[in-house]
Nucleic acid binder design. Sequence first.
DNA 1: TCAGTTGTTTATAT
DNA 2: AATATAAACAACTG
Length: 256
Amino acid sequence: MPELPDVEGFRRHWDRYAAGRRVERVEDVDASMLRETSPQALGRALGGRRLGRSRRHGKWLVCPAGGPALLLHFGMTGLLVSSEEEPERHAHDRFVLVLDRGELRYRNMRKLGAVRLAASEEEARAFLARLGPDWLDVSRERLDDLLSGRRGSLKAALMDQELAAGLGNLTADEALWQARLDPRRRVSSLSDGERSDLYRKIRKVLRDSIPHGLVPSKRTWLTGSREAGICPRCGAELSRTKVGGRTTVFCPEEQR
DNA sequence: TCAGTTGTTTATAT
DNA sequence: AATATAAACAACTG
């Protein structure tokens, strides 16, 4: 699931169920999810701390805890679950924050994500330093700077988190389909008008998805018709190939 | 049994 | 230096 809109949903989740509450203890930590820390260190750093409101950069969620901060990446199958929605813990919960009211769980079936502990805000920023700007902070002018000099395919550029952070396989396919651009196009071949259209469509896909906390399955969107294999606009059979190493769905009739 | 999966990192090749 | 590709990570689904 998790691309920018999903993580934006997790941010709201954290703020609703964890922000403002105190951590009693950390339980059931799966050490294999942790990067450069340990279950013991996590418990020591967070125990007794009052949690703050979270912020998102690309697909990362930064969760302040009154000095230290927890950095969460959700991979392909991660999510946050509160005991207020789901009383029972789950086999795929990789750690549990026991709070002064209820508990918040980080669940991740495939364990492709990562959990990091930053000692300070400064260290949290350092962890994310390699990422490009969050896509919601990219202006039309900035997009030209980011794309200038790129030689690869359009889709690979959009999914490159060091160019700009937050787009994933689904959002990239959706924006390219809405902009009627072939994902295999060279970045350098885009006209100014095409870049403008692409920019607007990326913003639209993100804006329309964020309230849902996921890329919605609308019948008028590519995402909603992936299974059917038919272009929702023209009825042509969709193509399925690999671009930038990822499964890519596009309309061969309309995307040029 | 085997391919496929909405993400990232690493190694290797170009 | 950038870019492309494949593999690895891990656990499940169809």
